[in-house]
Write a protein that binds this DNA or RNA. Structure first.
Lengths: 317, 317
DNA sequence: GCGATCTAGGTCAGGATCTGTCCTCAACTC
DNA sequence: GAGTTGAGGACAGATCCTGACCTAGATCGC
């Protein structure tokens, strides 16, 4: 059996778990001679992993950061932490790495042992989501969809369209696109015989059918462009226009790009434009800025803020 | 040179990146014969990685989830996503995996190539933090401290104590403990010759001195217990007592454990108790529940809500 | 049902690799 | 300066790895 291969992996694992390892300790642990350990270090170095070494008492080996990622050897707890972390990153929608996070999550979930998968699911259920945060996407759905995209497998799911009608769909998934706080699936709809985009928060019980398909080419340069074009005609339910009583430069850094735009009006005020489907979320977003403001549009937001204000006033009696 | 070892690693990497791989494609890619690929699969199986295989046309090899974590082979983008995800997980303080997330992050950062480290730092800076979220912990500090704990290296940092006085400290770090939204460092203070706990959000520019120390034993069964005991005497600045106009069972699931306690009063109301150092955060936490409520204590919160209410009312004119 | 296509795995021979032992150097700490 | 630790050359014997060749079994499409 490949004795050396597994020893090299174990060596990498040990070197990742602690920083300094004296050679004889490694030798004892792996049950080989010190000479073999030295040769193994040589091998690791030739494979591109930068192993540092220090002579003398308190010397030993240490794995430095190199120019390429070595294979990560994780224990159970760490694997869970990474899975949970990626799930949060996937729905963070502020850092611009959401799609990569999903890709990494697919890779991890493919090999995640069943007992760990259960623990991740349990933790995911316990995750607290802001009650006002609007419709959220189940990371489980994201990984199912992303895996189907990667493996060119057909997908079946229930879908509730914008006007509220439900339908069952069978599609050939092309890609997952993140835009703002939303996720979109771009796919060839087998029932409609055409390309469609689906909002992931509107679909239910996605499952791979197991059937493979040959990838079609999108009628657009990439999926992100396609999504952009297809949602251009479907704006948010509410578009807010608000005057903030603060200098534009003071507030700009506190508003992430896709949460709206800031335009200076004069030295002390600026205009904030932002949109959303959910009034509560819209109200909170403005109120959280922590500055005085006036709402111009929409009337529903004015009404909602009035309700909120009276609730707070009542509470503070 | 260990030809087979590196081929096995590459094989694992390929199997993690795509689900199905026909044998001859792998053979062509790795420039070995098909027989060797079959032998490699055998090797991987013997090393504990469950490789599935399908016969017939459209057959091939596939890496299933097994009972142990295989080494994760990440590309640059994925490594970044994981680092960012772990940073968010480390300060999520709702899932109970914060400490493990930091441990995994230390492992990852130890081997993260410099150019990736820069990109992670840039993304971290772009991360949007709620303006009302109170003092936040720099994930960079957490990893520096956690690495020092792991490697038994002395740590130097500036510290601002509760009453606002600044000092320089040199300590022998013992462990990092997460509690609620806070992080605490338990360490032997070399200047004071005694055990201390430090709030991580209050310390500045932590850096390892490089000096090693021999671990002392804590005068308590574990670090978490020690932190619990030492913060027992230092409560939050504001302790809120609020009556919510909603049944206890309806709201309980929406309040994570360390965000306070819910006690039913009658069928339609319950009492919510929670504490914080920051009024704005306290106010938001209550307001976000989305139900009617009455504030009994503290008077500062009443005052703060009154201000907030009038700001919203003014905005909604 | 049949043929094509794929994996599974036995066998064999030649060559490459790996290991422990022994040895000499160099670097570092106390 | 003494003791400890890593670096690495040389060597012999054991082990392993590979490609070639072959047969068997599974699966799919026609």
């Amino acid at each position: 059996m490949s004795e050396t291969s597994s020893r090299l992996l174990e060596l990498l694992s040990l070197l990742q778990g602690r920083r300094d390892w004296p050679g004889n300790e490694l030798a004892a642990r792996l049950d080989v001679s010190g000479r073999t350990i030295r040769r193994d270090m040589d091998r690791l170095r030739r494979l591109g992993y930068p192993v540092e070494s220090l002579s003398g008492p308190a010397g030993g080996y240490r794995l430095r950061a190199g120019s390429a990622m070595p294979p990560l050897l994780l224990d159970d707890e760490e694997a869970i932490a990474i899975a949970v972390g990626l799930r949060t990153a996937a729905r963070a929608s502020v850092t611009g790495i959401e799609e990569t996070a999903v890709r990494a999550l697919v890779k991890l979930e493919q090999v995640l042992p069943a007992h760990l998968r259960r623990r991740v699911a349990a933790l995911g259920a316990a995750t607290y989501t802001l009650p006002v945060a609007g419709p959220t996407v189940d990371p489980q759905h994201l990984t199912v969809i992303a895996a189907a995209c990667r493996d060119s497998e057909c997908l079946r799911f229930g879908y509730r369209s914008r006007d509220g009608t439900d339908s069952r769909r069978e599609v050939e998934p092309h890609s997952l696109v993140n835009h703002g706080r939303r996720w979109y699936l771009v796919a060839w709809d087998r029932g409609r015989d055409d390309w469609r985009t689906f909002r992931v928060d509107r679909l239910a019980t996605p499952a791979s059918t197991g059937a493979r398909f040959v990838a079609r080419s999108l009628p657009e340069k990439d999926a992100a462009a396609y999504v952009k074009r297809s949602i251009a005609g479907a704006p948010n339910r509410f578009e807010a226009r608000v005057t903030l009583h603060v200098a534009a430069e003071e507030i700009t850094s506190r508003v992430p790009a896709h949460w709206g735009t800031i335009e200076p009006l004069d030295a002390h005020t600026c205009e904030y434009r932002t949109g959303d489907d959910d009034l509560r979320w819209l109200a909170l977003r403005v109120a959280m800025l922590g500055v005085d403001f006036d709402v111009h549009e929409p009337p529903e937001l004015v009404e909602h803020l009035r309700t909120l204000a009276s609730r707070l006033r009542r509470a503070a009696r």
